[in-house]
Amino acid sequence: MTEHSWGLAADDHGTADDRPPLVLLHGLTYDRRHWEPVLRELAVIDPGRRAVAFDLPGHGGSPRRASYRSGEVVEVLHQAVTAAGLDAPIIVGHSLGGALATLYAAAHPARGVVNVDQPLLVGGFRDVLLQAEPTLRGPGWPQVWESMVAGMHVELLPPAARELVRTATTPRQDLLLGYWAELLDTPADELRKLRTHDLAAIRARGIPYHHVTGNPLPPAYRSWLESALPDVAVTVLPDSGHFPHLAHPAELAKILTG
């Protein structure tokens, strides 16, 4: 069922029961269609499970905003989750959605987080953005996004998944500048402190956290993550680039039902 009355466009699957509902959040410029392969697998191995795939603000069928700063977006998401009657869901996010899922669980009731290929420390990526900022703010902004996509290794995906990456996306300058604003204007050390604080809140509330990635985590990053969340689960789904959920939808579905 497609739903537009919760403030964000969404596809609502399954029915409410004693299983924790799933909230699915896509990555930057993409939309909720990216969860279709995983949802098909869920329907097979966990039939009837309530799962809602939202379009993030400014994406797909969801309304645009003047600001896409993370705190504001998380509150919009919480309003939509509440309107949908999703009580303490498992929050699943890919890329940008993984960061938002983390911030959501740090601030609102949640029974788990599954972060799909989103590092929470972005110092190196921030440096790249700062170098590209003049281009990003001008007419050549598509070049910046195209260079990002070129590093996501879409070629590793099966043909249907590659087509989904190509078509279920609407890159816009306002989305890139809006969602990346905090990376551009917040020092890396401050961002690290904020993410450490978020993970401390998740740990204090006993919320399970699962990081799914296409490649082994760099040792320094994994050390930081495990120091903040000693019980974190890390799963590598190889040969998937930046899209483990599209390369291995059955495996991710099993993680969501575990």
Rank of each mutant, 00 (worst) to 15 (best):
M1K: 12
H4V: 14
H4P: 06
W6I: 14
A9V: 06
A10I: 06
T15W: 14
D17V: 07
G27E: 01
T29W: 02
H34A: 04
W35K: 04
W35T: 03
W35P: 02
P37Y: 01
V38Y: 04
D46T: 15
P47V: 13
G48N: 13
R49K: 15
R49Q: 15
A53G: 07
A53Y: 02
F54I: 04
D55T: 00
D55Q: 03
D55W: 02
G58H: 07
G61W: 00
Y68I: 04
R69E: 12
E75A: 15
V76Q: 09
T82Q: 12
G85L: 07
G85R: 07
G85M: 08
L86C: 06
P89K: 08
V92P: 04
S95I: 03
G97K: 00
G98H: 01
L100R: 01
A101I: 03
T102W: 01
T102E: 09
L103T: 08
A106Y: 05
A107G: 13
Q118R: 07
G123V: 09
R126W: 11
L129V: 06
L129A: 06
E133I: 08
L136E: 05
L136T: 05
R137M: 08
G138Q: 10
P139V: 12
P142R: 04
Q143E: 13
Q143I: 08
S147V: 10
M148A: 13
L156P: 00
T169F: 04
T170C: 10
R172F: 04
Q173L: 02
D174S: 10
L176H: 06
L176V: 11
L177Q: 03
E182T: 05
D185Y: 12
P187H: 10
A188F: 12
L191M: 09
R192S: 14
T196N: 13
H197R: 15
A200S: 14
I202G: 02
A204E: 15
A204S: 15
P208R: 07
Y209A: 04
H211M: 14
V212E: 03
V212R: 04
T213F: 03
A220R: 14
Y221N: 01
L225Y: 06
P230E: 12
V232M: 08
V234W: 08
V236Q: 03
H242C: 09
A247Q: 02
A247G: 07
A247Y: 00
H248V: 04
H248T: 02
P249A: 06
E251Y: 04
E251K: 08
A253W: 00
A253F: 08
A253Y: 05
A253Q: 03
T257C: 11
